[in-house]
Amino acid sequence: MAILTMREALNQALFEEMERDERVFLMGEEVALYHGAYKVSMGLLEKFGEKRVVDSPITENSFVGLGVGAANVGLRPIIEVMTFNFSILALDQIINNAAKLRYMSGGQFECPIVIRGPNGAGGALAAQHSQALEAQYVHCPGLKVVMPSTPGDAKGLLKAAIRDPDPVIFMESEKLYNYKGEVPEEEDYILPIGKAEVKHSGSDVTIVTYGRMYTHAILPALERLEGEEGLSVEVIDMRTLAPLDLDTVLESVAKTNRMVLVEESWPKASVGAWISEQVYRYGFDLLDAPIERVSHLDVPMPYAANLEAEIIPGPESVVDAVRKVCYL
């Protein structure tokens, strides 16, 4: 195993897939000369040239749409949005075109595009630049939504996303780019889209999460829960939000009978709300307590760091929620 940062792992995946497949190109704001606003595309311009690593003007709706069109006719675009906040400008192209072409054409066309970039809060960036927007995409049929939490998962899943025949929304986190972890060194490391992973096994309570919440909120909470509280905690990292791996969740709840859902985004009509609904519906008899959900507080993100810290779920709220479902 190599120890890499998330940034390096993503970079490797891009590098390997571009090397493997001529049809793959990377386009987005500042991806070429500047090597990406967050330096994820370091070295790619130098290796693959201007034809395949393209700096776009600031025209999100249209360069995402251009990617959709290129995918429809046989290329394999990777479109970087500088952050997912700006993907909102491209929602029309993503939802009206990328997600529906296969369906509307009765399967004649497909859209093998990856739209990737950081999602969620970055730190004191205020309301327009701190949004966790995964629910927007999970809501829409025709899209796959992937959100890795570790460098290893990021690499394996990005490679899978690039090879996937459908549009994949691949959500990273600015806060995780420097986060280090193990990455398998095998030649073609691919992880399946649509499979959750039990990151930590236990028998008293199930925590379901994804993305940055795993490292930011769950890992520090685990120490306290297993140490001070003496609980045996199972942690499931969903990794893919659409399609949803409900089996892994229900299997765990069958064992623990208690579940806590932790997500970075707002609570209303969220991915957490959706997973809870599925668990209530198909696992009603398995539950010994109502599901607890930990989410972003239901407000736009303020600029002030002391308020931000209160608004993003942290270890404290995870511990509280776990205690609650365990009636402690």
Binding site: A124, A126, A127, Q128, P302, Y303, A304, L307
Partner: peptide
């Protein structure tokens, strides 16, 4: 004061540099 994330800032610390 707004830049310093303070309540006395013009958006009471909620807007920041860009707002």
């Amino acid at each position: 004061a707004e830049l310093f994330m303070k309540r006395t800032g013009s958006s009471h610390g909620k807007g920041g540099s860009m707002h």
